[in-house]
Design a protein around this nucleic acid. Structure first.
Lengths: 195, 195
DNA sequence: GTCTATAAGGTGATAGAC
DNA sequence: GTCTATCACCTTATAGAC
């Protein structure tokens, strides 16, 4: 990893991504210019193009990175075996993961429509993979009579929406910790689906 | 209501609002130019300014109209008396109202950040008024031992998020009617909060 | 790797004719 | 009420110097 004299790629690169993530989350992709990103990073606009081929690719890269990490972390944390235990694990993981990175979560939902079709399809497929794990848990639990869920697809949507909604109101440093929120939401989810 | 010769305000006015609503919902407020709206409406850009003082006011007006209608319709439909019946009525109303106008719902959530502070505060106050009715129902039901909800504020957020999430997947003409969805979601909400 | 300068075109909003 | 023309500015992206 030799470092070219005068180069700052190991500093500027991550800074560009962090800055873009923050600005896209706060103001929206369409409302944030490459000049604004460059200004926050502390470089001129031309320098940004050393780190992304264009603005669209920058957005896609942020969303792709987020979804890849979601699936990787989820796979690393899946250890339970019974449907009830798997559901609790999923609920707690989802809340913890999403509360940890509110900006990435926000743009991954809000900026989907600003992805070019091919990029959109790729992100959607990853999101679908994640949701399918929850649906499988709900179907397995229904088959085992642990759950009473008449429509597992709708229940999947309902649970995901309820859990992701935490990000709209939760503020770190408030009266509740992530663990508190996990307890309360798990209690509601359990009762909503339990036989 | 005399009509000036050559004037079309009674046609163009609503058309500007409908077009802006549709384009903002599809592409986002920042990505839609006044020229694009004018083009879809079938007028030149200067004509738009007979119907709105500026682009920001157009967005605000759409969101304000949506929230006013939400609160008016809700008030008109509130007839139940027991907490359980009031909750069921609220759940069914919320789904029916939101499925009826997906574009207005979408921009009312997605474009909040593009409102100027004073406009944002006004819309937020209306949304808060709506949410407070649900929280009151949950608190009354908990006091009456019909519900077992340890944290009524969080339960309010959870229920609203779950219900509004219907709009992300529901498509008119699919396998389920609005009434079907209401039945399924009411069943989940009831079990999540019932004592 | 970063800079400056530039290309080619889009932006919200207004003035004044009809 | 709608049109055309215009203002002042911002946009993404690239070329070439250092």
């Amino acid at each position: 990893m030799a470092r070219t004299a005068g180069s700052h790629s190991d500093i500027t690169g991550p800074k560009v991504r962090d800055t873009a993530l923050r600005l896209f989350a706060r103001h929206g992709y369409a409302a944030v210019s490459m000049r604004k990103i460059a200004g926050e990073v502390g470089v001129q606009v031309g320098a940004l193009y050393n780190y992304t081929s264009d603005k669209q690719t920058l957005l896609f890269s942020l969303l792709k990175g987020h979804m890849d990490e979601l699936l990787a972390q989820r796979a690393a944390h899946a250890t339970a075996t019974t449907p009830m235990a798997r559901l609790e694990e999923f609920v707690r993981f989802h809340i913890a993961f999403h509360l940890d990175r509110p900006e990435a979560v926000f743009i991954s939902y809000m900026e989907l429509r600003n992805l070019e079709p091919a990029n959109f399809d790729e992100i959607e497929a990853l999101r679908r993979t994640y949701e399918d794990e929850l649906e499988t848990i709900l179907r397995d639990g229904t088959a085992a009579a642990e759950f009473a869920v008449p429509d597992t697809r709708l229940a999947t949507f309902a649970v995901i929406a309820m859990l992701t909604g935490v990000n709209t109101w939760y503020r770190a440093g408030g009266r509740l910790s992530s663990a508190d929120v996990q307890d309360i939401y798990w209690n509601m989810v359990r009762r909503a689906v339990a036989a």
